[in-house]
């Protein structure tokens, strides 16, 4: 198994786990915790697989695109591990034996906000990398992909507003609202569409920045 396949499998796994993590009312508390542990392991593995990029930090030319990539990566790393830390502190099932090092009121509110920031930054992260990942595809394929992504993103934007996503990011909404009436498949699909919005944002930014790269060289 070459490293390309392993990397893509890890990418796919992280994305799938993300959709399930953001569906607490579907999975329930215990599974949510185990998914969180899985995600933490995957993120660590993902960074090990991409250690050459980490080692290249500070070296070479920093174009606007690379700056955006780096800033997003740093913010995402911070938000994700803070989310994980808060989650671990509240654990009742998976890692209860190391739980309780933060006041639950702090951990709960922080986990709620930071998980939403992580979600947004993950989407942007995927979006920023998407042009590189699809570089070898034909122009027609790329245009079609972008069009589909745009449609999903539009739906996603509508859902982000309807589900009060941004309220969680800024803790205007201090408690998670779980719609237990909503069909499980719908919950997951909505998560996918909401992520698509951030992916599209990242891709659009990447494409614009890369165009400006070309102009300056």
């Amino acid at each position: 198994m070459n490293s390309f396949i392993i990397k893509r499998c890890v990418d796919a796994a992280m994305t799938l786990v993300l959709f399930l993590l953001m569906a607490y009312q579907v999975t329930g508390g215990a599974l949510h915790e185990w998914l969180g542990i899985a995600m933490t392991a995957l993120v660590i593995f993902h960074n090990i697989l991409n250690r050459s990029r980490l080692r290249a930090f500070g070296k070479g030319r920093y174009t606007p695109y690379r700056i955006a990539l780096t800033v997003n990566d740093i913010l995402l790393l911070l938000c994700f591990f803070a989310t994980a830390l808060c989650g671990i502190s509240m654990s009742s099932h998976a890692v209860a034996f190391i739980s309780g090092f933060l006041p639950s009121s702090v951990a709960r509110a922080a986990h709620l906000a930071l998980s939403h920031w992580s979600f947004a930054l993950m989407g942007i992260h995927i979006g920023l990398h998407l042009p590189q990942m699809t570089a070898k595809a034909g122009k027609k394929v790329k245009t079609a992909l972008l069009a589909v992504l745009f449609i999903f993103a539009a739906a996603g934007m509508f859902l982000l507003i309807k589900n009060g996503f941004f309220g969680y990011m800024f803790l205007q909404t201090r408690f998670a609202f779980f719609d237990y009436e909503k069909n499980s498949a719908v919950v997951i699909i909505e998560n996918m569409l909401m992520l698509a919005f951030f992916v599209f944002a990242g891709t659009a930014a990447a494409l614009i920045m890369k165009k400006s790269n070309k102009k300056s060289t």
């Binding site: 009312q25 009436e181 069909n183 499980s184 498949a185 919950v187 997951i188 699909i189």
Partner: peptide
């Protein structure tokens, strides 16, 4: 993902 989520919905809320 859709298959998993349909299975999940079969398991019920």
């Amino acid at each position: 993902v859709m298959i998993i989520s349909l299975a999940g919905c079969g398991a019920g809320n």
